[in-house]
Simulated scan of single mutants.
Amino acid sequence: MNELVLDGEIIRSEEPRFTPSGLQVFEGILHHSGEVREAGGMRRLNFETLVVAYGEVAAKLYQLPLPARITLKGYITPRSSRTQRLIVYITEFS
């Protein structure tokens, strides 16, 4: 199963674009800062990751004033078949 729930701030977005079939595409950067329990202790996390969304979710993300704090649901996959660099695809957010 590949499901992800992550909170953070959208700190940057690219210019809106559309797929050849007309779906709106959102590409941006999410900054996450938090703590997780690991091996009996707390580990501080602070990172940025590329996020992508399509269609209605993309349109709603472009309406947010930046920086925008969100909790996203989605999945992780390689950016393309030619690379193993991972990207977060947003399927919904609040």
Rank of each mutant, 00 (worst) to 15 (best):
Q63P: 06
L72W: 01
A39Q: 15
L23T: 00
H31N: 06
S21D: 11
N2S: 06
F47H: 14
L4I: 10
E27M: 03
L30S: 05
M1A: 08
E38Q: 13
K60Q: 15
I90C: 04
E48H: 13
Q24N: 00
E14N: 08
S81C: 10
Y89K: 07
Q63G: 14
I76W: 06
P78I: 12
L6P: 02
A68N: 08
S13N: 11
K73F: 11
L61C: 04
V36K: 00
G74R: 01
L50C: 10
K73Y: 06
L30G: 05
S80Y: 14
T19F: 11
G22R: 03
I87R: 13
E27T: 01
Q63T: 12
M1C: 08
S13T: 08
G22D: 06
Y75R: 15
I11A: 04
G28R: 02
L50F: 07
A53Q: 04
M42P: 01
E15P: 08
L6C: 09
T83A: 10
R43L: 15
R44W: 12
I29S: 13
E56V: 02
R44A: 10
A59C: 07
G41D: 15
A59R: 13
V5Y: 03
E3N: 07
A58N: 05
L30N: 04
Y54E: 05
R43W: 14
E14C: 06
L4N: 00
L45Q: 15
T77N: 09
H32W: 02
H31W: 07
I10C: 00
P67E: 05
D7W: 02
P20A: 02
E38T: 11
R44P: 01
V5N: 06
Y75H: 12
I70M: 02
R17V: 00
L50I: 12
H31I: 02
E14Y: 08
Y62A: 03
I90S: 04
I11N: 01
K60W: 01
P16W: 07
I76K: 12
I10F: 05
T19E: 13
G74F: 00
E56W: 01
A59L: 08
P65H: 14
R69T: 11
S80K: 10
L6V: 09
Y62F: 15
R82M: 07
P65A: 14
D7V: 02
I10K: 00
R12C: 02
P78H: 10
M1N: 07
L72G: 13
E3F: 03
E3W: 00
T91M: 04
L61K: 05
V51S: 03
K60P: 05
E38V: 12
V52Y: 12
E3Q: 10
E15S: 11
I76C: 12
I87S: 06
E38P: 00
I10Q: 00
H31L: 02
G40W: 05
P16E: 01
E35L: 07
E38H: 14
A68P: 05
E92L: 01
E56A: 08
I11V: 13
D7C: 04
V52H: 13
D7F: 09
T83G: 05
R85S: 11
T77A: 14
E56D: 12
V52T: 15
S21C: 01
G22N: 04
E56I: 03
G40F: 08
R82Y: 09
E14A: 13
H32L: 01
E56R: 06
R37E: 15
A39F: 11
E9Y: 11
T19P: 09
L23A: 14
F47D: 09
R69M: 09
G28N: 04
